[in-house]
């Protein structure tokens, strides 16, 4: 038996290159894009809808990509709110990737969009490995998921730019202390921003917007 050194480079390099192309395309059109990740039911869509509402009030044009394994529920919610949107069904894939997002960008009127929210598939494991070419990666978690979400998925939280702890108005009812989630997040990601929201009522949305640079 012989061991022979070969170098194939990075298997995931193609993903990085495609993400880089998306980033270039978005920048060249003056679009700021955000990758919104988080578990199913954490409130990603509601957070995006509330952000969009406030941004539009300020005259900023918003677009959205809805990523789901199946169905078009989120997509329809965006469309009903008057947001230009594209639906991506991954068909059992657990994450969006740069290639799929690239096609979505082709179908969006980028010249009429200033800010693009890309809602990833509800999952806290795989989306972390697939950069999309966005300016920032945001994870939305809700207190109803328990206070141990960061401890259960440390890798995604260690890398993300910002965490939104949503549904804080329900914290007492479900017996979860948002401060504990916050403390765990600070440990794995000392530089990440953390914003507490109750998106449905609009609580924390202003603060989140300013953290996003608006």
């Amino acid at each position: 038996m012989h061991e022979i050194q070969v170098g194939f480079g990075d298997i995931l390099k193609k993903q990085l290159e495609l993400a880089g192309e998306n980033y270039e395309l978005l920048s060249s059109r003056g679009v700021r894009a955000f990758n919104v990740m988080g578990a199913i039911g954490s409130g990603k869509t509601t957070v995006i809808l509330k952000l969009a509402e406030e941004l539009r009030r300020r005259g900023i044009r918003v677009g959205a990509v809805a990523g789901d394994v199946a169905g078009d529920d989120d997509f329809r919610r965006f469309r009903e709110a008057g947001i230009p949107a594209v639906n991506i069904n991954t068909g059992d894939d657990c994450h969006l990737d740069a290639h799929r997002v690239h096609h979505a960008l082709e179908d969006l009127p980028l010249e009429d969009i200033d800010v693009l929210f890309i809602e990833n598939v509800g999952n806290l494991v795989c989306p972390a490995d697939f950069p999309l070419g966005t300016e920032m990666d945001i994870v939305v978690i809700s207190v109803t998921e328990g206070d141990d979400m960061v401890r259960k998925h440390p890798k995604i939280f260690a890398q993300t730019d910002m965490v939104v702890i949503n549904k804080v108005d329900l914290a007492e009812v479900v017996g979860v202390d948002p401060q504990r989630i916050l403390a765990d997040y600070r440990k794995v990601n000392p530089h990440g921003r953390a914003i507490l929201t109750a998106a449905k009522s609009g609580h924390g949305i202003e603060e989140l917007l300013s953290a996003l640079g608006f």
Partner: peptide, 13 residues
């Protein structure tokens, strides 16, 4: 830290 690379092959002579 985010890469997956093929670095070597073991072959039987």
């Amino acid at each position: 830290g985010k890469d997956l690379a093929v670095v070597a092959l073991t072959v039987e002579e």
